[in-house]
């Protein structure tokens, strides 16, 4: 393996996470991710995948270790975490769209309030993003009038509206009916083609095989194994084999 640190955009080193209730969710996890790389994280339920992803934008603080995003230390008290979060978009399993705003309102809200863009500019950009995710016709719908797949695509557009350098996806298709999974994965694939740095927690092995530059396997709070997709899926690591045997 080559030394990637010089061009890596995310450097997570020796991360420990112990929840207030004593649950030891991350044990000495280290991962470097390069600019433009797509990393897929898989692992059994409760293995700490979401916890790890959420430490990368500090929705979860860490108990020990260091994280640098684009050379900014997240553990440094002087770091303005809101600035870092502008650079790191996140897409949730349960969409978390703002129900009181239309699709366009969801996408334009943060650029208006955080980046102080004029409404007309933010809405113009928002319309283009919604067009890009295939929702040109649905801009003025409220989330309650959109299907799950449409809601998740709005959520992706909403994160992209802040022009992030990194996108985090936490099981973006797990809450979707099977027939809607494809439309969301297609949007993610096209994002990957455009060179977005992506960290994706998913159970979609097809997506991992096709799009990932690297696949990471986590179990019981540990990062067990990371490899390119070809080597990953042909590996004979016993813990990985056991997991793949269960899900495939």
């Amino acid at each position: 393996m080559t030394n990637r640190t010089d061009k890596s955009i995310i450097q997570a080193r020796n991360i420990e996470k112990i929840y207030p209730n004593g649950c030891h969710a991350l044990k000495n996890v280290s991962l470097d991710i390069n600019r433009g790389e797509v990393v897929v994280i898989i692992g059994p339920s409760g293995s700490g995948k979401s916890t790890f992803l959420r430490t990368l934008n500090q929705l979860e603080t860490i108990s020990d270790g260091t994280i640098h995003i684009d050379d900014v230390s997240l553990t440094d008290r002087k770091t303005n975490i809101n600035k870092v979060r502008e650079e790191v978009g996140m897409v949730f399993q349960s969409f978390n769209l703002f129900p009181h705003k239309t699709a366009l309102g969801n996408v334009a809200l943060s650029p208006i309030k955080v980046k102080k863009k004029p409404r007309a500019v933010a809405e113009q950009e928002g319309r283009e993003l919604l067009k890009k995710v295939g929702l040109a016709e649905r801009m003025n719908n409220y989330p309650s009038h959109l299907s799950g797949g449409q809601q998740q695509r709005v959520a992706i557009a909403r994160a992209l509206a802040m022009h992030p350098k990194i996108m985090l996806f936490d099981e973006p298709t797990s809450a979707l009916d099977p027939e809607m999974v494809g439309e969301v994965l297609d949007v993610m694939k096209s994002l990957a083609r455009d060179g977005m740095t992506m960290v994706v927690v998913t159970h979609e092995m097809g997506f991992a095989r096709e799009v990932a530059d690297r696949v990471v396997f986590m179990e019981e709070g540990e990062l067990v194994f990371e490899e390119s997709p070809e080597r990953f899926f042909s590996s004979d690591n016993p813990r990985l084999q056991r997991f793949l045997g269960q899900v495939l």
Binding site: K83, E86, N96, M162
Partner: peptide
Amino acid sequence: QMEAARSLGM
């Protein structure tokens, strides 16, 4: 909702 808002930089 709070997490989504904070993750957008608010």
